[in-house]
Design a protein around this nucleic acid. Structure first.
Lengths: 192, 192
DNA sequence: GCTTATTGCTTGCATAGTGCAATTGTATCT
DNA sequence: AGATACAATTGCACTATGCAAGCAATAAGC
């Protein structure tokens, strides 16, 4: 990977980009980006499996996994559990139903809520994808020690909390807060 | 419009989902998903800032950050650096140029390569977004100890490596390989 | 030289995904 | 009953993405 030497004669002058760069973001070391890269790669590989094979979209798979974990949930609960908006969830459920992987039943007490469940075919598909997902997980985890894995679990729990707080407050909440790496008091973040 | 599939479950049967669930994927504890959630939240918050304010798309921001880190790179190098395909990169550059945030110059030696650089406005925008990004980073990092952060760096490096390997081999490489991960019970067992 | 790949990049178009307003159906409140 | 609130869906416009084809510049073969 050779850089293209196309420098525009800034011999006498200081390179402006160098000056501009100082203190600015380094993408490769930016924590969220590092997390993003890893998870995207895995999601891509998994998606390359379930997409062509079952005709599932990404959100459909996500919803399927959520429903598999808690059968009979409503769409709204799926939204909260998966960080998805109600439209995606509604469409994902629609797709799952059309593909024969799930079915809705109106809630018994309150018929506004529709309880979603996987069908037989849905469970089959889920187990197959789930199997591959666990292999992926295993491969990742296999690259670090058990001790590291425990520690990682703790760390991720904290990061998860912090990110939820950030999301809840939005970017306005950060424009005012001073400091780059300063620690802020924890806020009880809404995840009831 | 669509006919809801007739109910054929949970009539007189034992709950099948309990049996189905065992050994299957738990989304909340699935490592890639945990990483995904954290990074998405942060990306959403940041995107909610630079999107409306500068009219940047997600890939445009990514490309901008990459270009800021290594001014004068070609589109191809951006692809590799950011895990993006050439089409997104091309369009992102186009958008950056149209917004006045970047400019291309044909390479001196090989004019197929176009060297991309940020403009003054581009640097201004980048610094502003970068600033917020660093606050986000700071807030995340602030939620864990410095020691944890060091450890996390190591772990992420390993996971990064492993995920790159997974991506390179694709899902076929995992169907056969017996990973260090979990095994799944293939046999449907009767309820105990 | 001339011709034929090859490479880096762009574009057009079809498809898939997303966001928002409006709508339906249900429950609750007065 | 009517008004109101809520879960969920849908229509429509918009954006993003994937892929085939294309263009321009270079490299390789003759």
């Amino acid at each position: 990977m050779q850089a293209i030497s196309n420098q525009k004669s800034n011999s006498g002058n200081a390179d402006p980009s160098r000056r501009q760069r100082e203190g600015a973001l380094q993408l490769e070391t930016w924590l969220p980006y590092r997390l993003f890269l890893i998870s995207t790669r895995v999601a891509d590989v998994l998606g390359a499996f379930y997409g062509p094979k079952f005709g599932l979209s990404r959100s459909s798979w996500r919803v399927m996994a959520i429903v598999a974990n808690r059968p009979g949930t409503s769409a709204k609960e799926i939204c909260q559990a998966g960080g998805l908006d109600q439209f995606s969830v509604s469409r994902a459920i629609k797709q799952l139903v059309e593909l024969g992987f799930a079915q809705r039943q109106a809630g018994r007490s309150d018929r506004r809520y529709a309880a979603i469940e996987l069908s037989e075919n849905g469970w089959d598909a889920f187990r197959e994808i789930s199997d591959l997902a666990q292999r992926l997980d295993g491969e990742l985890i296999g690259s670090i020690s058990k001790e590291d894995m425990d520690r990682l679990g703790d760390i991720l729990a904290k990061l998860d909390n912090a990110s939820a707080g950030i999301l809840a407050r939005g970017w306005h909440g950060l424009k005012e807060a001073e400091g780059g790496g300063k620690r802020l008091p924890d806020e009880p973040t809404g995840t009831p």
